[in-house]
């Protein structure tokens, strides 16, 4: 079974996706920890940093949302591997029966070829639907990344309300939030680029 460029690229796309998911998962854990720590610190600051406490709590929810979306992506990725494997095998059978048709010209072989082509087209269609779902999820994730950028900007503003002792710490945390939010956006952009380099799904 000699692979075609399309088959190789099908697996390549899913690898680009999986590697991005691993990096995003690390960001989600990091933001969760940061937010927890920030919530504890802002409790110490009392009423002056109630806004910061609220934003930190939002960031924590954000990291959970991110985690949930990544789990969905993980499931879809496994499904795509399954379908790409099947499609690779079907494409191989199609090539071999095609050779048989060319060498024999027998109507029975032609019928078999047509059936195989139908099966391959059905698999191809199912795979395209999975990829569409993945692209929708990636778009949701991109919006989540933007939302985190906005939230962390709010955190920076709220940090200014803290007393001098706490201000530096909260300012540092909000900058960490921002750096992670920007990373999420960057990772997604890189992943989409890597996936496009492997060809459009």
């Amino acid at each position: 079974m000699t692979p075609t460029a399309d088959e190789s690229h099908g697996f390549g796309r899913v690898v680009a996706l999986n590697e991005a998911c691993k990096q995003l998962l690390a960001r989600s854990f990091q933001v969760n920890l940061l937010a927890l720590d920030a919530m504890v610190q802002s409790k110490r600051g009392g009423g002056r940093v109630r806004g910061f406490d609220e934003v930190s709590s939002q960031m924590r929810m954000w990291s959970r949302d991110l985690h949930a979306k990544l789990e969905q992506l993980g499931e879809l990725s496994a499904e795509v591997v399954q379908r790409t494997s099947l499609l690779t095998k079907e494409a191989h059978v199609l090539r071999l029966i095609g050779e048989a048709v060319r060498s024999s010209g027998h109507p029975g072989a032609q019928r078999a070829l047509d059936e195989c082509r139908d099966a391959r087209d059905a698999s191809s269609h199912a795979l395209a639907i999975d990829w569409r779902k993945i692209m929708e999820l990636l778009s949701d994730l991109d919006q989540l990344g933007m939302m985190a950028c906005v939230l962390s900007r709010s955190a920076m503003i709220e940090a200014c309300g803290a007393g001098p002792e706490l201000r530096t710490q909260l300012d540092h945390v909000s900058r960490e939030f921002y750096a992670n939010a920007l990373s999420v956006v960057d990772i997604l952009a890189e992943a989409l680029k890597a996936m496009q380099q492997q060809g459009n799904p």
Binding site: M1, P3, E7, S8, G10
Partner: peptide
């Protein structure tokens, strides 16, 4: 083997 080679020729 063929599937692994499809991924990485």
């Amino acid at each position: 083997l063929a599937l692994w080679l499809s991924f990485k020729p």
